[in-house]
Write a protein that binds this DNA or RNA. Structure first.
Lengths: 314, 314
DNA sequence: TCGGCGGATAAGTATTCCCTTAAGCGTGAG
DNA sequence: CTCACGCTTAAGGGAATACTTATCCGCCGA
């Protein structure tokens, strides 16, 4: 019974599938399946069984889950407890939604590190919206920056709005048929995440999956839209330059422009790490707001990391 | 950071020495030292440093200890949580003081297993009195049978008297000099445990260490006393046969005969395992009392296991 | 009925654990 | 001083972990 095995069990149980846990951990599917098999054999119970679409907990699994979850969380607390004081730098593990990751996470973290956070080791990973609560609750991450996360009663975390923008639909010069459902929608991975702002927008517009094309990044999707391949979704403030240059134009729909707010989600104050608290405070500064408003300033695009679903720390 | 490593750290911290932890775990001293070294390297702190006689916690170690302790305890809880229900047998890990171990633990456990405890896997180990609270608090054991354990405020455990006897000093036919301090005291390992009844008796009589000879078992010590080598300590009810046969005679001292009571120590009711509760209830039955009063009945001496300081159940 | 999706399994490998014995040091007691 | 005791390090071996790619299996939908 290893902490690694317990971690994978918790993620499988909480995310409801081996595949999701594997992607959240950044490992292959058999790795997760195998860790689960080891636990199952040692404890003599299936713990989770597949039941059609998703995995369901056995009674023993339901008893194990809260215990395992707490052990994993304590494991992270143990490291933090030792590093505190000790002159050792604090650690901020930030997860961000796809959009935030692509445009603002890196410059934001750089600015944070240069400013107050000199003593804080910061790393960033990308996660789907429904992964974020799980990652936070189990101390895989210290803070999450993305859409508002519906709080569940049992895991004590809070979401606070940190940046307000609005989503628009953009297209190139081509003419579009009348019905949004017939358009070709060009999105990045975020669009396939039903809990993200983009995903919710597509759902509200009843866009069928067949009309959605997924690109590796928002930038690529916007470029394709500018070429007339279809329409794309964008936070308005990130495409002002392209609109000004005429590469893109805003297309109004029944649901757009739509308010969209980025939230910072962390554990409740008493469980929050010092690094997370420092970062939370930093986000309310004018410097942070400026970075979120004009993220491109001074960051060479070569520094953008290819989206890994989540980078795993330790 | 392995659960094993955390366990050894907790034991070293709680017992105050690498040697004690090694013997409690039933492994070699370097094994403990190495586990500690691995933790130290990974966490970047010494955690415990030797300070003359005993090991002292660093500030980081003090912060880590409660967390590590809880993780270890949860690890045991996790197994128990899965095994409960599931048809799997419960598990009772009993630790006993040397005297209890030598004479009554095995027949008691056998009787328990034959009676109510058919569904309970039982195993017994021997531990020094000051190890018992640590082993219980960290779920290395479910119940301890031996002297009364002074409760510490932070670990929630209870001691209940289960058997009352009295200690006597016995000798062979030889004449003894007047002062007990001058006698040759023949004891088993229990006599070297300052928290045991025998050890406390030796301390009250101010017997110097130079006058103490340690034997592998109480039986061996009594045999030597019968040969006139010195005096020994015995629970009165265990030497009645030898007294009747004239092999031994009771020698009164300033402190003996002394009341001596065996206690069962377990976690507080809400944290107690089902197996421990069952055993606790069994000890109050007439059958259990009879076994403790006449332990030799029906148990071939070949079954007596050589005393291992503590057998470890993974 | 046939793909396809998701989970389990197989086989192989690098790494880490965990324990051993043997030997090296620091410190305190005699 | 010297010696014993206790902690640490070194070296080595066996087992378990943790990951990979490749393959198989069960199930659902078209």
């Amino acid at each position: 019974m290893t902490l690694t095995q317990l971690s994978t069990f918790v993620l499988v149980a909480r995310l409801g599938s081996v595949k999701a846990a594997a992607s959240a951990l950044g490992v292959s599917e058999p790795a997760v399946s195998q860790a689960l098999a080891a636990l199952r054999q040692q404890l003599g119970d299936q713990l989770v069984t597949r039941s059609g679409a998703s995995m369901r907990l056995t009674p023993a699994g339901m008893r194990l889950l809260p215990i395992a979850s707490q052990m994993v969380a304590l494991g992270a607390d143990a490291e933090a407890a030792v590093r505190v004081g000790k002159g050792a730098p604090g650690q901020l593990r930030l997860v961000a939604s796809g959009t935030v990751m692509e445009f603002v996470a890196t410059p934001l973290v750089n600015a944070f590190a240069e400013g107050k956070g000199e003593r804080i080791d910061t790393s960033v990973g990308m996660a789907a919206a429904d992964e974020m609560p799980v990652l936070l609750a189990n101390r895989f991450a210290d803070a999450a920056l993305g859409p508002n996360l519906i709080p569940r009663p049992d895991d004590e975390m809070v979401s606070e709005p940190v940046f307000r923008t609005h989503l628009v639909v953009v297209a190139g010069a081509t003419r579009l048929p009348g019905n949004p459902r017939g358009w070709s929608w060009l999105v990045d991975q975020t669009g396939t995440d039903p809990a993200s702002d983009s995903g919710r927008l597509l759902a509200r517009l009843h866009v069928p999956e067949s009309r959605i094309r997924v690109f590796g990044s928002q930038t690529a999707a916007w470029a394709a839209a500018a070429d007339g391949t279809g329409v794309a979704i964008a936070p308005a403030h990130l495409v002002t330059a392209r609109l000004r240059r005429g590469e893109l134009r805003v297309v109004n729909t029944a649901c757009t422009p739509a308010d969209s707010t980025w939230y910072l989600t962390t554990l409740c104050p008493e469980r929050r790490s010092i690094a997370a608290e420092t970062f939370r405070h930093y986000l309310s500064t004018a410097a942070a707001l400026r970075v979120m408003r004009e993220p491109g300033s001074g960051v060479p695009p070569s520094k953008f990391r290819p989206p890994v679903y989540v980078t795993l720390w330790s």
